[in-house]
């Protein structure tokens, strides 16, 4: 087993997603159009409500974080969705790749797309709304992005797992789950305004910690980034193992065959 071989198994997923993405006109919408719409909506709303500097930053961090989360998570889910839509899932799973090759490769490409969108969004919000995304230094931005990408990978994996467990239509349920995660992790508000049980749940979602971390650079309270980092790392490991188990199970139930019909 050569390292280069292992890397290329991962890159196979990135390569496929890259070509499909490159040829898909909707990529422009995914990466530029919709992100700008949501950024401008939030930005203009802050004008209308006459909100001051820090709070604007608070909301823009949420809007930008949410956007790149969505872009990156769908890339991870695409690794299985593209195979399913083109009915070529057999080719993938008859080869000696494992779940983590697919997820890591797709994540890599998701990070490229996410970073691209992030760059556009921070530049635009700097120009239009005076948002200084480097207020906490470069490392703050990098740690925040790393956290968002890791959470994206988790959501993408949950989508893949649901499909392998319950079949094609299950992705809808999985996307709804990601909606709930966004709701409780406080995209547009501090989680302190949530009812206690939801706050407790929010503390179990790593995204919460990464949002708080980035926002603390703009003077919004404390953060506990270590907890978030350890949590997301643990979730990633659990997620990858769960995906591996699910793939093996899909081979036993035969759903892998049905998904390729």
């Amino acid at each position: 087993m050569s390292l280069q071989g292992e890397i290329n198994k991962c890159l196979s997923a990135a390569y496929k997603n890259w070509i499909i993405s490159k040829r898909n006109v909707f990529t422009v919408f995914e990466l530029v159009f919709w992100p700008l719409i949501s950024l401008l909506s939030i930005g203009l709303m802050t004008r209308f409500l006459n909100i001051g500097g820090e709070t604007v930053a608070f909301l823009l961090v949420g809007a930008i974080g949410l956007t790149i989360l969505q872009i990156c998570q769908i890339d991870v889910a695409y690794v299985l969705l593209f195979d399913m839509w083109s009915k070529s899932i057999k080719n993938t799973f008859v080869s000696p790749v494992r779940g983590y090759h697919l997820v890591l490769g797709a994540l890599l490409f998701g990070m490229v797309r996410g970073t691209f969108a992030f760059t556009i969004l921070v530049v635009i919000s700097r120009i239009l709304f005076g948002f200084d995304f480097l207020a906490g230094g470069v490392h703050t931005v990098l740690i925040f992005l790393a956290g968002v990408f890791a959470v994206s990978a988790l959501i993408g994996m949950i989508v893949c797992i649901s499909i392998l467990l319950f079949g094609q239509k299950a992705d809808v349920a999985a996307w709804s789950l990601s909606g709930v995660i966004m709701l409780i992790s406080g995209i547009y508000y501090p989680i302190s305004i949530l009812p206690d049980p939801l706050q407790l749940m929010a503390r179990a979602v790593p995204l919460t910690y990464f949002l708080e971390y980035y926002r603390s650079a703009y003077g919004f309270g404390d953060h506990n980034i270590m907890t978030g980092a350890v949590m997301v790392a643990a979730y990633m490991i659990v997620g990858l193992i769960a995906l591996e188990i699910t793939i093996e199970r899909a081979r036993s139930t035969g759903i892998l065959l049905r998904l390729s019909e």
Partner: peptide, 24 residues
């Protein structure tokens, strides 16, 4: 047979080869 639709013949083969760890 089925392959990802928008990949060309060469790209599809390259992708499949990568799944087997072939490189360079």
């Amino acid at each position: 047979p089925n392959f990802p639709w928008s990949l060309t013949v060469r790209e599809n083969l390259r992708h499949s080869g990568m799944l087997y760890g072939l490189h360079g």
